[in-house]
Simulated assay, not measured.
Amino acid sequence: MASPYFSNILKTLNPDFLIYDFVVPWALSLGLDQNIPTIQFFIFSAVSVSFLFHRLFKGPSVRFPFPAIYLRDYEIGKFNSMMPPASSNDNRKDDGVPPLQFLITIGHSCDLILLKTFREIEGKYVDYLYELMDSKVVRLGPLLHDPTKDQEDKDEETDHVIKWLNQRETSSVVYISFGSEYFLSKEEIEEIAHGLELSKVSFIWVVRFPKEEKVTRAKEVLPKGFVERVGERGMIVEGWAPCKNMSISMNL
């Protein structure tokens, strides 16, 4: 739906080049149609990118040259269902087309491939990408975010977490979080709480609930008296934690 509007933007701006993410494959076609050099930017590791393009261009029968990287049996079926035929050259992402169909064209049509990595960590995988791709591969480094400039510093809802963390001793705080896609059951929450209470360690525990869940407060599912018993030793965060700012603390 956005491609017609984006095409008009390109015509108006007439940029020297176009950098785009793989989730908007139609940007490649728009750039090529207007003779704009296209640059693909992968924000994930060279390991995963090289493995992906290996399967795209060489097929599942050719073993990936680095045996430590492989698919488990239960992953193979799901992965294969996402893969296009190696001979395909369709960069659309329409219904009925395998989700990774468009990567075939990306691998052969981009002027540059940008990777969020550096040689000291993923050198052999970057070198293998050079062998696989028609495009030039450029490493951008880790591109680490500077949390000291983040707006989270000014967020009153999370600022108290940082203040609490800064008052702890070095390497004394355990961080518990299961991300944004997994929600603990009441039984799992009780078991983790029991372990934290017995451990006597300081902790930051992020607890989230699905939107449709009637329970909206952690205290409703935590063991009775848990918060009072752990006291200042523990910090329960409901919703989102200021992970970027927390990551620079030596106390975590």
Rank of each mutant, 00 (worst) to 15 (best):
I9V: 02
W26L: 12
G59R: 00
N8T: 05
L10M: 02
Y125S: 10
P84C: 03
T12L: 14
H54N: 07
S81M: 08
F66I: 04
F22M: 13
K11G: 03
A86K: 14
I106K: 11
D94H: 15
S7A: 15
L115T: 01
F64T: 06
N80L: 09
S3A: 14
E122C: 01
I19A: 08
S61I: 04
I36V: 03
P84A: 02
P67G: 11
I76M: 03
R63M: 11
F44Q: 14
S48T: 12
I104G: 14
L112E: 09
L114R: 06
L112I: 04
F102T: 05
P99D: 13
F102D: 12
L114I: 07
H108D: 13
K124V: 01
I113Q: 10
A46E: 06
G107C: 08
R55W: 10
R55Y: 09
T12D: 14
G107M: 12
C110F: 07
L10I: 00
K116W: 10
F118T: 00
F79V: 02
P25C: 13
I19F: 09
L13H: 08
F51S: 07
G96W: 13
S109Y: 06
L13C: 06
Y74T: 00
E122S: 02
F44L: 05
Y74L: 05
S109T: 14
C110A: 14
V24L: 14
A2W: 13
P4G: 08
L114S: 09
G31L: 04
S45H: 04
S29E: 06
D21G: 11
